[in-house]
Structure formats: C-alpha cells, structure tokens
Design a protein around this nucleic acid. Structure first.
Lengths: 112, 112
DNA sequence: AATCAGTACTATGTATTACTATATACTTGT
DNA sequence: ACAAGTATATAGTAATACATAGTACTGATT
C-alpha cells in the first residue's frame, strides 16, 4: 500500500508502544515488526525518532546489551507511564476509528 | 475525547471528501457535521485549510451562493478526480485500520 | 587483509498537516 | 447602534513521519 504516511501520523507511536509492551525489544527489531505487519515502507529513522520521544517522555526503561550480530542493542521495556500511555492510545483509536467507520457505513445513505 | 489531533492527521481530509460526496455543502456546514460526528474540537480554520487544499488539487467544483443567514456560501461538490481520491482514501483506511486492529487483537498474545 | 553485506544506533533537515488566533463581512434581532 | 450567529480568509505554530546520511560492529567472501 503506497503513500499511507499521513495516515500513520499519530498511530505509529502507539504501534511501537504496543510492540514494546509485548516484551523487551530494540529499534531495529521494531522496524522489522512494523514492516511484517504491513507497513513495509517504515524506515529505521522513523522508528528512531519515536523511540527517542518515548525516552524523552520517560515512557520506557532502557538497557543496552551486546549482540553477536552487530553493534550493541538498546532494549526498551514499557514502564508504568508507558503502559498508561498505551491504554490511552487504544482508547483514542477506538474512538476515532469507530467514528470514521460510522461515516463510512453511511456511505449508502447518500441518495436520500 | 481530548487530544486526538495527531490521530486525525491524514484522515480528516478523507472525512471532508466523504461529507462533500453526499451532496453540495460548504465549509461551515462541514465543520458542524464533523462536530456532530464526534470530532467536537474541529474548528472552522482547520476545515478551511482542507477545502483550500481540495480546491488547489482540483478535486471539487465550486459554486458561490447567497444565503439568508449570513454572508455568501461557497458550495463544494466532488468532481471525478475527487471521487477517485475518496475511493483511494477508503482503500488506505481499510488497509491501515485493519493492520492496526490486527495488532490490537494480538494484545493477549503478549505472554507467549 | 581487505572488502562487503547485514545489523544497529544516531543525527539533521524537510514536507505535510491540524490547530491557534485573528480579521473581515453579512444578516437578523434587540 | 449593537451583539450574536453565520461564513470565508490568512498568517503563524507544533507535531510527526520521512529522506538522507553517518557511524560502528560482526561474519563471510574475495
């Protein structure tokens, strides 16, 4: 799916939070998981800006670990604030997506 | 629902297109319809920037009409390009929202 | 040993977009 | 005359995903 950039704004951070919430992970792996999910054009730089933001707002705990596959990895885990943030995200998503689907549903009412 | 601004980016334009597709309407009325839908904090300025964009990319036809309730209204209708754009929007929405719901669905697989 | 591919983090700058705030103007009711 | 509701217009701001590039480590190929 091409050019979904703008539609991803505001949801990509939540997706990253959700991925982290499933267990310790790091930037490169998060990028790959987003690509596997279907957001194939997401690049490392994008995920990096998000993880930096999560750090900045203290939503994650960080641990640096060596890897046999390349340079050290920065592992993230959600802390309490991050968990809270994730729940708020899903509540917002439920709200917004339900409203948009409502609009979509009414598509056939055009001719009234 | 507070602070859904970022989540509306990339979808609000599509919502406006959908509203216009149901029949001739104008900026002020579009704003009200978005508010009725649940996006209560959307303001006229926001809708104005969107309709200006639609004009700029020639997705709408415009007709100015007098009103008994205030200054003249600028009525919009979707043209063929706008209709096409709207269909692309819904395809993108289907894709993105299904992927995010997939992610959400798997919430309980965290402990595997 | 030298090079390259894959892994992995970091950094800067840009485009897009919704919002804020404000200005202008028309109509009706008081 | 004035205020409130209706309605368009515009400049400036903040947030975010992306493009692009750089640095660095490991293992395999040459």
């Amino acid at each position: 799916m091409e050019n979904i950039t703008e539609m991803l704004k505001g949801v990509l951070e939540g997706c990253v939070l959700e991925i982290i919430s499933r267990g310790e992970t790091y930037g490169y792996e998060i990028t790959q998981q987003l690509r596997e999910l279907g957001f194939t054009d997401v690049v490392e730089g994008t995920v990096y800006t998000i993880t930096m933001r999560l750090e900045k707002y203290n939503l994650v705990d960080i641990e640096k670990k060596r890897s046999t596959m390349g340079p050290p990895r920065k592992f993230y885990t959600l802390n309490a604030a991050g968990q809270e943030h994730l729940e708020v995200f899903w509540r917002k998503w439920e709200f917004v997506s339900s409203k948009i689907n409502e609009l979509k549903q009414n598509q056939n009412e055009k001719e009234q």
